[in-house]
Amino acid sequence: MGAPADQGLIVRRIRDGTVIDHIPAGRALTVLRILGLSGREGLRIALVMNVESRKLGRKDIVKVEGLSLTREATDLIALVAPTATINIVKDYRVVEKRRVKVPDEVVGLLQCPNPTCITRKRGEPIKPRFVKVSESPLVLRCVYCGTKLGEEDIVRQFEGAH
């Protein structure tokens, strides 16, 4: 799908790229952060926030033109937007639809909140690593110290970033 008709007046359909739909309202910026998109890449990005949604009440939408996101990249979106759906668009047509799924292991992206976890040791060449304990509700566990992270903790980390 492109943009639903009632949003057509806000954002046009994109030619080639990725549409991330059904993002929980207010989390579009966090989704961009997870994808590592700052806007300085020169890509055309459309952000729609707090629009009506039949499924969610209100939702955000992100459209990125000129970039087909890999499954690895879009799965990370599930950390902050488990309801998100991904549409890959080529020549104005949706060529692939995806649901996002929290990866079994998240490496290097999140910080362990335990200040005495080995991953927090200053100068140590170690990447934080979390395994998924449950998808809904979302719970991750630090493989090194066992500390658990819930969805709220995860969202807070990304919102605090930058």
């Binding site: 976890c117 080995i118 140590e124 630090c142 493989v143 090194y144």
Partner: peptide, 27 residues
């Protein structure tokens, strides 16, 4: 810590480690 462990690994057949950080032994 990683470099210290690498050195001990080169010298010994097994390493016993105690450290104040959680997860240091797994690392």
């Amino acid at each position: 810590f990683a470099d210290t462990i690498r050195m001990l690994d080169a010298y010994a057949d097994a390493i016993v480690v105690r450290h104040k950080y959680e997860g240091s032994a797994l690392y």
